[in-house]
Nucleic acid binder design. Structure first.
Length: 139
DNA sequence: GCCAACGTTGGC
DNA sequence: GCCAACGTTGGC
């Protein structure tokens, strides 16, 4: 069981959109970055991830679950790109902002803090527990 | 709206 | 295979 972080601009695809999709989930398509794609290839069904809103929110707003492993991205003909499917698990009681992550010394090495541009990232178990604690949510 | 950081592309 | 040019992302 691994932990991840999925980043999205809320104007393009938001947490609410994911919740609305229900248990069958939604393709996490549109990723055009090799590092991000490679992380998706490592994902297994049942892995959990944070859902992060970039830009206006800049906060982790909920937890998602991987419900299908990597498969070709249906939004392109280019067979280099793959994606997983994710579904919403539960929202945070209170969103965990980027600023909160930056201020907590336990999260100093978090990819979100160090490389804000990577759209799909691994999260360690320790980081997972800290962010859940800050968000008022069970890990 | 600006700009820094980063990834990708393409000419050589 | 290198590197300059370019495009995109995302925080501020």
């Amino acid at each position: 069981m691994k932990y991840w972080l999925f980043k999205s601009e809320p104007d393009t695809w938001s947490w609410d959109n994911t919740v609305a999709k229900g248990p069958e989930g939604e393709e996490w398509d549109g990723v055009r970055n090799y590092q991000a794609r490679n992380f998706m290839r490592e994902m297994a069904t049942g892995d959990l991830g944070f859902f992060y809103h970039s830009q206006s929110d800049k906060a982790v707003v909920g937890i998602v679950e991987v419900c299908a492993t990597a498969h070709p991205d249906s939004s392109t003909e280019d067979d280099r790109w793959e994606c997983v499917d994710i579904r919403a698990v539960r929202p945070f009681a209170s969103p965990v902002t980027l600023q909160m992550c930056k201020e907590d010394p336990r999260l100093a090495d978090m990819v979100l803090v160090k490389n804000s541009r990577l759209s799909v990232q691994p999260v360690t178990k320790e980081e997972w527990n800290v962010v859940c604690e800050l968000g008022g949510t069970e890990p």
